[in-house]
Write a protein that binds this DNA or RNA. Structure first.
Length: 415
DNA sequence: TCTGGGGTCCTAGGACCC
DNA sequence: TCTGGGGTCCTAGGACCC
């Protein structure tokens, strides 16, 4: 049996790359997308390679970034633009195979097994794709290739930026022998620490470590871990029409200042419910599990969830559950840093209709549809349902203003 | 390192049922 | 009920990914 050839495409410093492309004056300088010098809070999403030389990286707190590199230039993210570039690139990949699976705006797996030989081999095809990305979008990408997704991802990490690495099955053991376990797909901080405590530091050591011990410590994941360390993995890349349904949808928000007033917090919670509900309706989905997350000043995080009887998609159904869950979880003495709302156990409204023949229809009424449309065009606080507003205190408007600020994480690539 | 926001999957205990 | 074993559902929390 012949093994497959899976490619992992990873756009180099993607957000920064698009900004450097569009603003040549920034080139050669330490640049970070996300965050802001003035707010002095939050995190950066991407650091340019110049900035990385100072130790900056994605996920880093703005405050730390400023310490390490005071001259760093912050650029506000333009996610709509990045999504556009990303979609153009992923569309191009579809010319080679229908098995293209985006994992995020800047990464995708695709299965080239059926075309790679008539395209002149693994390297020739990868180079051609890299070239086409530069020609059409003027940004660079790194491609990793392997017999499965996990190996392809490791391969992509080996030479960046603008790189290409093929980790053929024959080469895997050799490369993995001295590679840190943390470089394996799925080994994060916690797993890495646990493995270190076993004396396992390299993928090679993990590959020969007794599976029974791994299973005892990591459960189901233990056996998988052992396989991944031996270069085995998942070699199925799904076509767009084969992708599973989304399972949950939610929004959370960290406040620029911690909140202690319950009405303020509930105001934010209501806005989050509205946003989730609107997305559910747009995606024609409804869900049965509502959950609320509260994060306190010290980063202690609690969540409460409840399964409800019916599939719901409207904020007038979601918010009352969310409010009840909030009261169950909330400790009033503490300052609140974040709240979130999620709806899970999702099902398409078409399916819901089949199952719930004798209950009132789920479809958004004309009023709801009109409100969604208005918000789509004029923004978050253009209109709202009066039931959940807290404007009697005069607080709601200022809350709404804060929430309506551009949120760089709103857009998700359809996948 | 004082830590964003979007997700997925797994675990473990208790309820409840037969 | 001084009491077994197994299955499924519900809920809270955590690890991991980008």
């Amino acid at each position: 049996m012949h093994h497959k050839v899976i490619f992992h495409l990873d756009m180099d410093q993607f957000f920064v790359a698009v900004e450097l492309r569009d603003h040549p004056s920034l080139r050669g300088k330490p640049v970070a997308v996300g965050g802001s010098r003035h707010v002095g809070k939050g995190i950066i999403t991407t650091a340019s390679y110049e900035a990385r030389r100072y130790g900056l990286h994605s996920g880093m707190a703005v405050r730390d970034a400023l310490q390490l590199c005071p001259q760093v230039i912050f650029v506000h993210p333009d996610i709509a633009k990045y999504v556009h570039v990303s979609q153009s690139i992923f569309r191009m990949l579809l010319e080679y195979t229908d098995r293209v699976e985006p994992v995020s705006v800047d990464e995708a797996y695709f299965d080239v097994s059926d075309v790679v030989w008539k395209e002149g081999g693994v390297e020739a095809l990868a180079m051609k794709i890299k070239r086409r990305i530069v020609q059409t979008e003027r940004v660079t990408a790194t491609i990793g290739a392997g017999a499965n997704r996990q190996v392809a991802k490791v391969a992509a990490g080996m030479h960046k930026p603008d790189g290409f690495t093929y980790l053929s099955p024959e080469r895997v053991a050799d490369v993995y022998r001295d590679m840190p376990v943390g470089d394996l797909c799925g080994v994060g901080r916690a797993t890495e620490q646990a493995l270190h405590s076993f004396g396992v530091h390299t993928a090679g050591q993990l590959a020969v470590f007794p599976v029974e011990i791994l299973k005892r410590r990591f459960g189901k994941w233990g056996a998988e871990l052992s396989r991944v360390a031996r270069g085995e993995g998942d070699d199925v890349v799904l076509r767009p029409d084969e992708r599973p349904q989304e399972k949950s949808m939610g929004h959370e928000q960290t406040f620029s200042r911690e909140l202690k007033n319950e009405h303020d917090i509930l105001g934010r919670l209501h806005l989050l419910c509205e946003k989730v509900a609107r997305r559910l309706r747009a995606a024609q989905l409804a869900g049965k599990v509502v959950s609320v997350t509260i994060r306190y000043k010290g980063f202690e995080t609690v969540s409460h969830e409840r399964k409800v009887k019916r599939n719901i998609q409207h904020e007038m159904d979601i918010y009352p559950v969310a409010e009840a869950l909030f009261h169950e979880a909330y400790q009033p003495a503490q300052l609140v840093r974040l709240v979130g709302v999620h709806v899970a156990d999702l099902m398409s409204t078409a399916h819901v209709r089949q199952l719930e023949l004798f209950v009132p229809p789920l479809e958004p009424d004309d009023l709801t549809r009109a409100c969604d449309d208005i918000k789509e065009r004029f923004g978050e606080r253009a209109i709202g349902f009066a039931s959940g507003t807290f404007n009697m205190e005069g607080r709601f408007l200022s809350n709404a203003r804060a929430v309506a600020q551009y949120n760089p994480f709103h857009h998700r690539i359809a996948s």
